[in-house]
């Protein structure tokens, strides 16, 4: 599992983004987190070379949601051989935008006193779910009707053992809000909303049938290409 706090948003474990063999001894692992409305790139920098590393700086290529460092990369002391440091880099979403394929691909350049290195990573889209993503109920109903059926995408969330209340709480900790809940013929229907940092709203219907560990998630969004990523976020959140 991850290192997310029970009531906070989910944070995946760090993975290696840049192996030492490709960066003259600099190994970078990382993950993304969202805390108190702020997005962070959590980095571990490990010096596997035989010389000291200094003068670190980081830059992002333009990306789908305008993610950019909100401050310089703070590595205050030289990184000595075999030393690892943890750095939390604050990000904002006001950088240059260019739709990437896959959508959440981020190309990063990092430099030190030795050279400049490049790597790509994927950020989980739930980092971009904002705190004020609970849609007004009347607007939800109107928007649900207004978005054409062709824009509705259905997914199965398999082998989930949470009840409707646990699902609601877990999703709310990750800025997915339940706008309404109905029980029809024994099954729970949760109507939910979330908003991305770029203002795109996603409406969801999550259907939980008694005795069925597979839930049906229906997503409606004016930008249907985000649906697959939002489904991925539901799966990650509900299974961790």
């Amino acid at each position: 599992g991850g290192v997310g706090m029970p009531t906070g948003s989910y944070v995946a474990p760090k993975s290696v983004w840049l192996p030492a063999a490709k960066a003259k001894g600099l190994e970078i692992s990382g993950t993304f987190s969202r805390r108190m409305g702020h997005i962070y790139m959590e980095l571990s920098l490990m010096n596997k070379a035989m010389q000291v590393m200094t003068d670190f700086a980081i830059q992002f290529n333009r990306n789908s949601f305008g993610l950019a460092p909100a401050a310089p990369l703070q590595v205050n002391a030289p990184l000595t051989p075999n030393q690892t440091i943890e750095v939390s880099l604050p990000l904002n979403t006001v950088g240059p935008v260019m739709k990437m394929d896959p959508l959440s691909n981020l190309q990063v350049a990092i430099k030190n006193n030795i050279d400049v290195f490049y790597f790509s990573c994927l950020y989980p889209i739930n980092m971009l779910f904002v705190e004020d993503g609970k849609m007004d109920r009347q607007i939800f109903l109107a928007t649900w009707k207004d978005i054409p059926n062709e824009n509705e995408v259905q997914f199965q969330i398999k082998e989930c053992h949470l009840n409707a209340d646990a699902v609601t709480n877990k999703l709310q900790s990750n800025n997915i809000y339940t706008v309404a809940k109905r029980n029809v013929e024994g099954q729970d229907m949760l109507y939910q909303s979330l908003k991305l940092t770029n203002g795109i709203w996603v409406l969801a219907e999550l259907r939980i049938q008694p005795g069925n560990i597979n839930y049906t998630l229906s997503l409606k969004c004016r930008a249907p290409e985000v649906a697959q990523h939002v489904f991925g976020a539901y799966e990650t959140i509900l299974k961790n």
Binding site: R137, V184, E205
Partner: peptide
């Protein structure tokens, strides 16, 4: 009263989705 209307509208939506 508007709240009641919205409650009713969500019930109708859930019903329609279950039995289209």
């Amino acid at each position: 009263e508007m709240d009641d209307d919205l409650d009713e509208a969500f019930s109708r939506l859930a019903q329609a989705r279950t039995n289209p």
